[in-house]
C-alpha cells in the first residue's frame, strides 16, 4: 500500500468517531500470561479510566492501543485490537502513523533533553513539516492548551529538563497534542506529581475530552471518580467490571470491585 493510501485510510477514519475495541485479547511475556482474554469497547469522546492493583495488566492493556509493547522482549499477543473496526496489528498498518493518531503520556514526565520549543515541535518536525510560522503557531497553541504558555513563553529555548515535574508533564501533554491525535492514552500521568500539578492536569484532561478519546490508567481512585466517564476494573489480567464511573464507585456489581474501591486490598 502506498504512503498516500495509508494516510487516506487514517484520514477517512477521522470522520468517523474514534472507537477502540479489544476482542478476546491475550498477552504473554515469555511464559507469563499478563492478559487473560479481555474484550471491551471504549467509547469515543469520553474519559475511560483503568483501575486495579499493581501488576493487574492495566498498563500492558493500555499500551496495546498504540502498539508500545512491540519493543518489549518476550511480548506476544493474541486477539484483536480494533480502532474503528480496523485491526491495528494488521500488516498494512503503518505503526508510526498509528502512533500519531494515538498519542501517549507516560507515568514519569519524559521530555526530550532539548528546548521547550523543540519538544513541542518534535512530532511535527519528524513528519517533515518545516514551515517556521506554522510550527511556531502550533507550539504556542499547544502550550496554551495545557496552560503552560504563560509560564514559559519568555524562554522557549530553555532546556525542558529545567522545568518542574508538573511543568514537564504538561509539556509532554502539549507535545502529544501538537500532532493532533484523536486518542490519548495516559499511563498514570500524575503519579509522579505533587497535588497542585495533579489538579492542573486533571482539569486539563477534563477539558480535552470534548475533542479526544482519552484512556487513563490510574492508581488514584479519587482521580478516576473525578475525571472519568467510564471505569474498568482489572484484576490479575482479567477485566472484572466495566461500567459508568458513577455505578462502579457507588454500586458495583462484583464483590472484588467493591473490595478494591473501598480499599480492602490493592
Amino acid at each position: 500500500m502506498s504512503k498516500e493510501k495509508k494516510e487516506s485510510v487514517i484520514e477517512s477514519s477521522i470522520k468517523r468517531k474514534y472507537k477502540l475495541q479489544a476482542k478476546d485479547v491475550k498477552v504473554w511475556y515469555d511464559d507469563f500470561m499478563a492478559i487473560k482474554g479481555i474484550s471491551m469497547d471504549i467509547k469515543p469522546n469520553k474519559v475511560t479510566a483503568f483501575i486495579g492493583p499493581s501488576g493487574c495488566g492495566k498498563s500492558t492493556f493500555l499500551r496495546l492501543f498504540n502498539r508500545m509493547n512491540d519493543y518489549v522482549d518476550g511480548f506476544k499477543m493474541d486477539g484483536e485490537i480494533n480502532i474503528d473496526d480496523k485491526n491495528i496489528n494488521d500488516k498494512d498498518i503503518n505503526v508510526e502513523l498509528l502512533r500519531k493518531q494515538v498519542g501517549m503520556v507516560f507515568q514519569k514526565p519524559n521530555p526530550f533533553p532539548k528546548s521547550i520549543y523543540e519538544n513541542v515541535a518534535y512530532g511535527l518536525k519528524i513528519q517533515g513539516l518545516k514551515d517556521k510560522k506554522f510550527l511556531e503557531e502550533r507550539v504556542e497553541s499547544s502550550l496554551k492548551r495545557v496552560a503552560l504558555w504563560d509560564e514559559v513563553k519568555d524562554d522557549l529555548n530553555k532546556n525542558a529538563l529545567a522545568l518542574s515535574g508538573g511543568q514537564q508533564q504538561r509539556l509532554c501533554i502539549a507535545r502529544t497534542l501538537a500532532v493532533e491525535p484523536s486518542i490519548i492514552l495516559m499511563d498514570e500521568p500524575t503519579s509522579a506529581l505533587d497535588p497542585i500539578s495533579t489538579a492542573k492536569i486533571e482539569e486539563l484532561i477534563y477539558k480535552l475530552k470534548d475533542k479526544y478519546t482519552i484512556v487513563i490508567v490510574t492508581h488514584n481512585m479519587q482521580q478516576a471518580s473525578r475525571i472519568s466517564d467510564n471505569t474498568a476494573f482489572f484484576y490479575l489480567g482479567e477485566l472484572i467490571e466495566y461500567d459508568k464511573t458513577n455505578k462502579i464507585f457507588t454500586n458495583p456489581e462484583k464483590q472484588q470491585t467493591e473490595n478494591y474501591i473501598t480499599g480492602r486490598f490493592g
Binding site: N66, M68, Y71, E96, L97, L98, R99, K100, G103, M104, F106, K108, N110, P111, F112, P113, Y122, G123, I126, Q127, C172, R175, T176, V179
Partner: peptide, 15 residues
C-alpha cells in the same frame, strides 16, 4: 539513555 526517552520518541510516532 533512560528507556523513557525511547518510549517518548516511539510514542510520538518516530521511526
Amino acid at each position: 539513555v533512560p528507556n523513557s526517552l525511547r518510549e517518548a520518541a516511539y510514542g510520538m510516532g518516530s521511526t
